[in-house]
């Protein structure tokens, strides 16, 4: 396959995970440090179901998303009622526990050596359509009262409660959707790279997604997606040795966040209305 398409599939799949982090951390200010574990769970569960159990790809993905949603529910139950930093801590612990599980349950997961021989089922079409659908879903979510509730909770939780918002339920919904999205991204990645290993899903991966969200702009879906594509593409295009590459990458992020604390795009959103208007005007000119 063309190198750029291979890179593109990876970016598309990871961007779906970034969408999850955008909802959770960007919109709601909830710092999950174990978000990558959901990607790992999605990847491992769907891969094992397809390779070892022989289930169809779609069914396997669905099951992995359901399991991740259920786990998110349980983790949320234990951590979303209490102080915000406890949520970060509990999700962090959850992430470490999941990785330990991948590493130790060798008979099923292959342990530290990883799980290989996954069929290549993630076609370019599937990856790009999935990302488009993912963006559409989050866009729809943001056009409802959930965006207002998110911003309200992020800026003043007590006032949000008193205004009648069930803060716990809201956070739970967001956490579950984010987990399901991330799990889906994990499945796509697993059937793209055809190999998974525990260390891909550590807290540093999670933190990378958080950085991407703030780089692009936590208040802009467009910004987050552009940031995601730029930052995920950068390592592939910058042809230095890895370490220099990451240093340059970090430097860019530091500069952007220092100079433009609201992120690359601030609150600006791409909207199709001006384009449509332009189109209409042209039509009128023609007629």
């Amino acid at each position: 396959m063309d190198f750029y398409i291979v890179v593109g599939i990876g970016i598309a799949a990871n961007s779906i995970a970034v969408l999850g982090t955008f909802m959770l951390t960007g919109m709601n200010g909830l710092f999950s440090l174990g978000q990558a574990a959901f990607m790992g769970l999605g990847a491992y569960i769907s891969a094992i179901l397809v390779v070892n159990v022989g289930l169809p790809f779609a069914v396997a993905i669905l099951i992995s998303m359901l399991i991740c949603s259920a786990l998110a529910f349980l983790v949320g139950l234990a951590s979303l009622r209490i102080r915000q930093d406890f949520f970060a801590l509990v999700t962090f612990g959850f992430g470490q526990a999941v990785i330990a599980f991948f590493q130790e349950y060798v008979s099923v997961t292959g342990g530290a050596l990883g799980f290989s021989n996954i069929p290549n089922l993630t076609t370019p079409t599937l990856a790009f359509v999935s990302l488009a659908v993912g963006i559409f879903l989050v866009w729809g979510f943001r056009r409802s009262h959930f965006l207002r509730d998110s911003l309200a909770i992020r800026s003043n939780e007590l006032a949000a409660k008193v205004a009648g918002i069930n803060v716990f339920k809201h956070k739970m919904i967001v956490f579950i959707i984010a987990a399901a999205l991330t799990a889906y991204a994990g499945s796509l990645m697993a059937f793209h790279t055809r190999y998974v290993e525990p260390k891909m899903y550590g807290w540093i991966t999670t933190v990378t997604w958080i950085i991407i969200v703030f780089f692009g702009g936590r208040d802009s879906l467009t910004g987050t997606m552009v940031g995601s594509i730029l930052l995920l593409m950068a390592p592939e295009l910058l042809r230095f040795t890895t370490a220099y590459r990451i240093i340059l990458y970090c430097a860019i992020i530091l500069i952007i966040i220092n100079v433009r604390p609201k992120g690359l795009f601030g609150t600006w959103e791409l909207s199709i209305k001006p384009l449509l208007r332009l189109f209409k005007r042209k039509k009128q000119e023609v007629s």
Binding site: F31, I211, F214, Y244, I246, I247, C250, I253, L254, I257
Partner: peptide, 18 residues
Amino acid sequence: LVYFFVTSVTMLMLLEQI
């Protein structure tokens, strides 16, 4: 405050790569 967090993890990665 959240921006401090973001830059601090970025710094961690940067120092690691050095």
